Amino acid sequence: MTKYLTWFLVFMFFSCSMTTKKDYKINGVSFVASRDQISKENVQPVLNVHANYTAIMPFGFIKNLEHPEIIYNTNKQWFGETTEGVSQYINVLQKSGLQVMLKPQIWVWHGEFTGHIKMPNEVAWLELEQTYSQFILDFAKLAQEKQVALFCIGTELEQFIVHRPEFWQELIKNIRAVYSGELTYAANWDEYKRTPFWNDLDYIGVDAYFPVSDKITPRVEDAITGWQAHKIEMKTVSETFKKPILFTEFGYRSTDYTGKEPWVSDYKITALNFEGQTNATQALFETFWKEPWFAGGFVWKWFHNHAESGGKKDNQFTPQNKPVEAVIRNYYKRQ
């Protein structure tokens, strides 16, 4: 009897520790998978910006927007995208005192937008449901095994959700059956108001690439002004569902017009503009991090090889070795 009571108390401890609401902000980075294992040396730069969470993002791949089969956990993928790699990353990150959001994602060949995934017929829809369930539940079980604090059930999959809402309701139940931590979904910035299952999750997840300024180099004040209408809408959604808003992704490129269409990630844009990236990021922090209905977020994106990442010639999203890194460090340190 004593043995069973001990195991029950252990289970309750882990369950409660994973589901208790935070009294602090989630100050996260999106930790990109690599070909290699990681070590504490790769984690130290994350700790240096005072992050307390990392998102780990294993990918599954589909051939096109109408193809139902998801390929994942193969020897053709980078180590950090496989279950073995995810497990190794989580071990190192947790040993360093970081919490983890496990965020399995789909990549469509040629980089087509996942929100447009839509099957041509019922047979294909059923196959997609089966393969997506297997993909997500495999990682949900791993999340439970590793006592991961937060699990993301999908990323930017609006048409899949619109056309198969019953599937998603059942999927959430099946995830809850194998994973006892907190759940979110990463809705695109223009999708979250229509997502139908926020009542069944713990956070309203938003990939926060909202347009906030049309200027070449937005000032902090410009971007703060540009946020106001979006902020009101998010606060309303949070109050409606009685769930906190979590930015499952946020960030800006170090390029001109960074606040105009922040979701653009192609390499056709060649301009460098660190001031715009810094100002837009500061405005986001000033707008949201003090709000009680806002849970925090995950910077997009952070590479394991910090010394070689970002820098003065890079105009992509990563803040590493750019002036904006100091802004993130400053705000994360306050929490």
Score class of each variant (00 low, 15 high):
Asp256Gln: 04
Leu183Ser: 01
Ala55Cys: 11
Val237Ala: 10
Arg35His: 08
Asn48His: 10
Arg164Trp: 05
Ile106Ser: 02
Thr155Ala: 10
Thr240Arg: 15
Val327His: 04
Asn174Trp: 07
Gln159Ile: 00
Lys40Arg: 11
Tyr179Gln: 00
Gln277Lys: 02
Arg35Met: 06
Met12Val: 06
Ser213Arg: 02
Glu261Asn: 13
Ala149Asn: 10
Trp78Met: 15
Glu308Ala: 15
Trp302His: 04
Ala177Gly: 06
Leu5Ala: 11
Ile224Gly: 02
Ile136Phe: 05
Thr114Leu: 09
Glu156Trp: 12
Tyr53Phe: 15
Asn27Gln: 15
Leu102Trp: 08
Thr248Ala: 12
Glu233Arg: 10
Gly60Gln: 12
Ala295Thr: 07
Glu233Tyr: 02
Leu65Ile: 15
Phe250Asn: 05
Lys21Asp: 11
Asn174Glu: 14
His163Thr: 06
Val206Trp: 03
Lys146Glu: 12
Gly111Trp: 10
Val237Trp: 07
Ser39Gln: 09
Gln37Lys: 14
Lys22Thr: 05
Gly259Cys: 04
Ala33Cys: 07
Thr83Ser: 12
Gly297Lys: 05
Ala326Ile: 05
Ser238Arg: 01
Leu157Glu: 09
Thr258Gly: 02
Ser309Trp: 01
Ala149Asp: 10
Phe197Glu: 02
Leu102Cys: 00
Lys118Tyr: 10
Met12Ile: 09
Lys103Trp: 03
Ala271Trp: 07
Gly310Gln: 06
Glu69Asn: 12
Glu286Asn: 08
Glu191Cys: 09
Asn330Thr: 13
Gln105Val: 13
Phe288Asp: 02
Gln99Thr: 01
Thr131Met: 02
Val86Lys: 06
Trp300His: 12
Phe241Met: 03
Glu166Ser: 12
Met12Gln: 08
Val49Asp: 02
Pro323Asn: 09
Met119Arg: 12
Asp266Trp: 11
Trp107Arg: 07
Tyr179His: 01
